[in-house]
């Protein structure tokens, strides 16, 4: 009887102590809310955030909002009631983040936005306390492409170019296209022949380019695509028409197919949005804030232009 009593006592004690022992180690708990797991690049960013969490012993939980603003808010409420120490959020809609900012402020935990900037156009002092942003400026990708084009053809070149635009309602599509024009409008020799939405798709990039070849013939010297998929479609069309060597083609994202195409000399350049920088960056900022360090509200992770000269660095 005594033996059993002792055993029960030990079990009870162990039950009481064990969870305590784990929480006594005081693992930091961070909740990561992704806008949409169907978006390949978002899974890349999330992968780096998760890897950082594992490497640093962070108690990491994540959720997928499936491009639904309300769902994202609900998931963040769940995170907060689970007692997370910080939130890392990729906004579904950058203009609808006020409720989430309020939730985080009430819970008195730091909130780090990643990849999509809800504070675009705000001055540093206008950004709510204890909220941060880590990401890139979409317009830079367009600027990088255009600047590389000018570098390749020369400032005084006479060249017609066309832009393959992503989905018309996406901020990235609008801003990248804007970046292209902002640079090239400065050079009178560069003429925008056409811009058309290919909805990020390779097949549409191909069909549109086929029509452009008919419409502009030799005038067409460059195709700037908002992403790699459309750029690769353009390349298929140019190769079928046997004029690939006369037209410069660039994309954005540096997907695996684009890496291969750059190595083979088919794609002239791509612009890498730094998923590692963003995913790790978001988690790092959260950790620094929790450690009591002073952190700038905005951290820009620069894009990287990838060309045949530096492709070897991206293996």
């Amino acid at each position: 009887m005594k033996k059993y009593l002792v055993l029960i006592l030990i079990v009870v004690l162990a039950m009481g102590v064990l969870p305590g022992a784990v929480s006594a180690a005081d693992k930091i708990k961070i909740g990561y809310s992704c806008n949409n797991f169907n978006d390949t690049f978002q899974t890349v960013i999330e992968g780096y955030a998760r890897a950082y969490a594992e490497a640093n012993g962070i108690d990491y939980s994540y959720s997928d909002a499936g491009e639904d603003v309300i769902k994202q808010q609900d998931q963040i409420k769940v995170f907060i009631s689970e007692g997370v120490d910080a939130l890392v959020v990729v906004p579904v809609d950058t203009s609808a983040m006020d409720p989430i900012i309020k939730l985080a402020a009430e819970a008195k935990i730091p909130l780090v936005f990643v990849n999509r900037n809800p504070f675009a156009g705000l001055k540093a002092e206008e950004i709510p306390a204890n909220t941060y942003y880590v990401g890139s400026e979409s317009i830079d990708a367009g600027i990088f492409q255009a600047e590389y084009l000018v570098k390749k053809l020369g400032e005084d070149a006479k060249a017609g170019y066309a832009i393959l635009v992503g989905m018309l309602s996406n901020e990235a599509a609008v801003a990248r296209t804007e970046g292209n024009k902002q640079v090239l409008n400065k050079y009178p020799g560069y003429k925008l022949l056409a811009e058309k939405n290919g909805d990020w798709q390779r097949d549409q990039g191909m069909s549109i380019t086929e029509n452009w070849i008919t419409a502009f013939g030799d005038e067409l010297k460059a195709i700037l695509a908002n992403n790699d998929e459309m750029a690769l479609g353009a390349i298929e069309a140019l190769e079928a028409a046997k004029i690939k060597d006369k037209v410069i083609v660039m994309g954005v994202d540096l997907i695996d197919d684009a890496k291969v195409a750059i190595k083979e000399g088919r794609l002239d350049a791509s612009v890498l949005q730094d998923g590692k920088g963003q995913g790790e960056g978001g988690m790092k900022i959260a950790m620094q804030v929790l450690a009591g360090e002073k952190v700038d509200p905005i951290t820009m992770i620069p894009y990287v232009l990838v060309t045949p000269e530096n492709i070897a660095d991206f293996e």
């Binding site: 798709q201 390779r202 097949d203 191909m206 998929e229 690769l232 479609g233 298929e236 197919d257």
Partner: peptide, 14 residues
């Protein structure tokens, strides 16, 4: 036909 035209296929196709 579509795969042949692009010599590749994407899950978001069509």
């Amino acid at each position: 036909v579509s795969t042949g035209r692009m010599v590749s296929a994407q899950p978001g196709l069509a």
